[in-house]
Design a binder for these strands. Structure first.
Length: 561
RNA sequence: GGCCCUAUCGUCUAACGGUUAGGACGGAGCCUUCUCAAGGCUUAAAUCAGGGUUCGAUUCCCUGUAGGGUCACCA
C-alpha cells in the first residue's frame, strides 16, 4: 500500500509537515535541570481544587529551577465546553498567586489553546498516515458497540486492537469505496505493541513502574477532524518544550498510548510525574473529589467561606509535602509575624509517595487558616474581611464602614500579644466573632434570655442590672488602662452590688451573695454583648466604651418586667 | 472482569531489617482563667490477613483481601 497516496487522499489540504512547526516553535534551549511545566485544564466548569493543587506544584517546580510554567487550555472536546470556564480558570490562578509565565497571548508558543491548533495536529496526523503509522477507520458507533458486546460475551478485553482492528489492513480500494459512498471516518494510530509485554518506566513521583506496551489502535483524529487528547498532548508538549509533565494519576493508564506516540514521532520523552487525586470520604467509600457532587471541589467555595488564599495554598502545600507541618510549626516560623506559606521550602522529594491520595480535611484547613489570620495585623484583617463582605455580606460592609476605626479597635483585641487570638478561622465565621460589637448585631432579647436562665429569677436579675447600670455610670473602673488594676476595681464593684469575689466565702455561705464572681462577670458579658463567649472583658468594655455599655444594659433592662 | 497503582492511629504521615512504632490535625482530660480563643501538660488511638526469607520484618518475597485508577470519536 502506498501510504503517501492514502495521506493525500484523506488530507489533501494539509500542506505542512511537523518540521515546519518545529521551525516556527524552536526549542527553548534551556540548560539541563531547568524545568518547563504546564497546567492543562479543560474548560468544563469551575476551577477545581485539584487543578489548583497541580498548578501550585507545577509553578513551584518551574520557579525553583528558573524555568517556565505555562497554561494550556485543552478544549478539544467542544461538546463538553462550558462558556466562561476559561476565564474562571485564569482568574482563579491569578487570585491564588499562581499566574502562569506563559499562556493566553503571552509567550512564544502561542496559541496556548488547543482549539486554535488544529492545523498543527493535522500535519502530525498526516505525517503518521504517510508513514503507515495511522489509518482511517470507518466503523460506526453502532458497529463499535456491537463489537464491544461481542467482546464482553466472549470475555475478552474490550477495545480496538489486534484482530478487532477491522480497518487496520484495509486496501486503498476499500477506503476509496467508502469515501465515495460519503462515509465518515476517524483516524487511528497503528499500534505495534504487545499488551502482555511490560516496559519499565520511571515516574518522577511514583518511582519505577511496569507498564504494558500499547496494542490499541486508539483514535488520534475524530470524525470531523477534531483531535483527541493523546495526540494533542504529545504534539503540544513537544512543540512547547515541556520538560516535566505533571498530571493526575488517572492518566497513568493511558501512558502506554503516549509513549507509543513519542516513539512514533521519534521525539524526546519528557519527565512524567503522576499525582494522586484529592479524595473525599463519601459514606463508607472514598472517591475522587467530584466536580458535580462536591462543593469542596470548587475553588470558589473557599473564597465564599472566606478562607484567605494563603490558607488554601498552605493546605495544598501540606498535601504535596507532608513535612509542611514540621516547618510551619517550628519555633522560628511560629515566632515570625511576616512569614508566608509561600516561603515553604517545597521539595519534589516530598511528592515521592505512593498511597491512595489524601482525603480533604477541613479541620486541618481551619487550623492552618487560623494560624495565618492570627499572624495578620488588625488593619489587614479589617481589609480582608471587608473585601470578603463586599461580595458576600453587603450589610456587614455598610455597618463596618460606618465606623472603620472602631472595627479596627475591635480586631486589635488580644491581637498584638505574643499569643494572639486564634478565633477567626475564615471571614464568614470570623464575622460572628466580632459583629456583636456593632449595635446592629447586638440583640438585647437574646441577652435577656441567657441571663434569666442564669439568674433563675427575673426580678433579682432586674435588680442586678439596675445596680450595674448605676455603679458603672458613677464609676469608671472599666476604663482603666491596666488589666491588673481593672481586675481589682471590678472586684470592688462586684462586692458593692452584692457578689462574692472570693470562692471560699461564696462556698461557705452562698445565700449571702447574689452570686459568685463568675456569674457577675457573665452578667456583664452577656448584658453588653449578647454572647457568653467573648475575649477578655477588660478589652471588650474598653473598646465598647462607657456610653455603649450603659446603653446596652439599659436596653436589656427594658426587656425585663 | 482485564490491566495498573496502593495498604501504619479517625485523618495527613515518620520510622538504614533492630524504636517503647514518632509527629501533626481532630478527640478526651487537666492546668491557667471573668467566659471563649490561644498556650502548657497528660491521654486514648495504627503496622489489612496468612504464609515465607531472617537471630530479628512496619520494612524484603509470595498469596489472599480491601481501596483507588482505568478500560470512550472525555479530558
Amino acid at each position: 500500500m502506498d501510504y503517501s497516496k492514502l495521506a493525500e487522499l484523506l488530507l489533501p489540504d494539509v500542506k505542512t509537515v511537523p518540521q515546519d512547526w518545529r521551525k516556527k516553535y524552536p526549542s527553548r534551549n534551556l540548560p539541563k535541570g531547568v524545568e518547563v511545566t504546564r497546567l492543562c485544564p479543560s474548560p468544563t466548569g469551575f476551577l477545581h481544587v485539584g487543578a489548583l493543587y497541580m498548578g501550585l506544584i507545577c509553578k513551584r517546580i518551574a520557579a525553583d529551577s528558573n524555568g517556565v510554567f505555562y497554561l494550556r487550555i485543552e478544549d478539544t472536546d467542544e461538546a463538553r465546553e462550558v462558556v466562561g470556564a476559561k476565564e474562571l480558570i485564569v482568574k482563579g490562578l491569578d487570585q491564588y498567586g499562581l499566574t502562569p509565565d506563559e499562556g493566553g497571548s503571552i509567550g512564544n508558543y502561542a496559541p496556548y489553546i488547543q482549539s486554535a491548533r488544529k492545523d498543527i495536529y493535522a500535519s502530525y496526523v498526516k505525517d503518521l498516515i504517510k508513514r503507515g503509522l495511522a489509518y482511517p477507520c470507518f466503523m460506526t458507533p453502532d458497529e463499535l458497540s456491537a463489537m464491544r458486546k461481542e467482546q464482553e460475551t466472549a470475555k475478552v478485553r474490550p477495545g480496538y486492537y489486534g484482530k478487532y482492528a477491522k480497518w487496520k489492513d484495509a486496501s486503498i480500494e476499500q477506503i476509496k469505496e467508502r469515501l465515495a459512498e460519503g462515509a465518515t471516518y476517524c483516524v487511528r494510530f497503528r499500534a505495534n505493541g504487545d499488551q502482555n509485554k511490560k516496559q519499565p518506566f520511571k515516574d518522577e513521583f511514583l518511582g519505577d513502574l511496569q507498564i504494558p506496551e500499547n496494542d490499541e489502535d486508539f483514535i488520534i483524529m475524530k470524525t470531523g477532524g477534531g483531535t483527541t487528547y493523546h495526540l494533542a498532548h504529545v504534539v503540544d508538549d513537544s512543540l512547547m518544550g515541556t520538560t516535566f509533565v505533571i498530571r493526575g494519576e488517572e492518566w497513568l493508564s493511558s501512558l502506554p498510548k503516549h509513549l507509543a506516540l513519542w516513539k512514533a514521532f521519534d521525539l524526546e520523552i519528557p519527565l512524567y510525574g503522576h499525582i494522586m487525586p484529592i479524595n473525599k470520604q463519601d459514606g463508607g467509600s472514598v472517591r475522587k473529589l467530584s466536580k458535580r457532587k462536591d462543593p469542596e471541589a470548587n475553588v470558589e467555595m473557599y473564597s465564599k467561606a472566606g478562607y484567605p488564599e494563603d490558607a488554601i495554598i498552605g493546605y495544598l502545600y501540606r498535601l504535596a509535602n507532608p513535612s509542611f507541618d514540621e516547618w510551619w510549626q517550628s519555633p522560628e516560623i511560629v515566632a515570625k509575624k511576616d512569614v508566608s506559606v509561600r516561603d515553604f521550602p517545597f521539595s519534589i522529594e516530598g511528592l515521592k509517595r505512593g498511597g491512595r491520595g489524601p482525603l480533604v480535611d477541613m479541620k486541618k484547613l481551619d487550623d492552618i487558616s487560623g494560624d495565618i489570620i492570627a499572624k495578620m495585623s488588625a488593619d489587614m484583617v479589617a481589609e480582608k474581611m471587608i473585601a470578603w463582605a463586599e461580595i458576600n455580606d453587603i450589610e456587614f460592609t455598610k455597618v463596618v464602614n460606618n465606623n472603620l476605626d472602631y472595627f479596627k479597635q475591635v480586631l486589635s483585641i488580644e491581637r498584638d500579644a505574643s499569643n494572639p487570638r486564634k478565633d477567626i478561622l475564615n471571614w464568614s465565621q470570623g464575622k460572628s466573632t466580632v459583629d456583636y460589637f456593632f449595635d446592629e448585631y447586638f440583640d438585647a432579647k437574646v441577652a435577656k434570655e441567657i441571663l434569666v436562665a442564669d439568674h433563675l429569677d427575673e426580678n433579682r436579675l432586674n435588680t442586678v442590672i439596675k445596680d450595674l447600670i448605676q455603679t458603672l455610670s458613677e464609676n469608671s473602673y472599666y476604663t482603666e488602662n491596666s488589666l491588673e488594676i481593672w481586675v481589682e476595681n471590678i472586684k470592688k464593684l462586684a462586692t458593692m452590688i452584692g457578689f462574692a469575689t472570693d470562692r471560699k466565702a461564696y462556698k461557705e455561705a452562698p445565700d449571702k451573695f447574689k452570686g459568685d464572681f463568675a456569674l457577675f462577670m457573665k452578667t456583664i458579658r452577656v448584658g453588653v454583648t449578647g454572647r457568653d463567649r467573648t475575649p477578655n472583658l477588660f478589652y471588650v468594655l474598653k473598646v465598647l466604651g462607657k456610653e455603649r455599655v450603659l446603653a446596652r444594659l439599659e436596653h436589656v433592662a427594658s426587656q425585663l418586667t
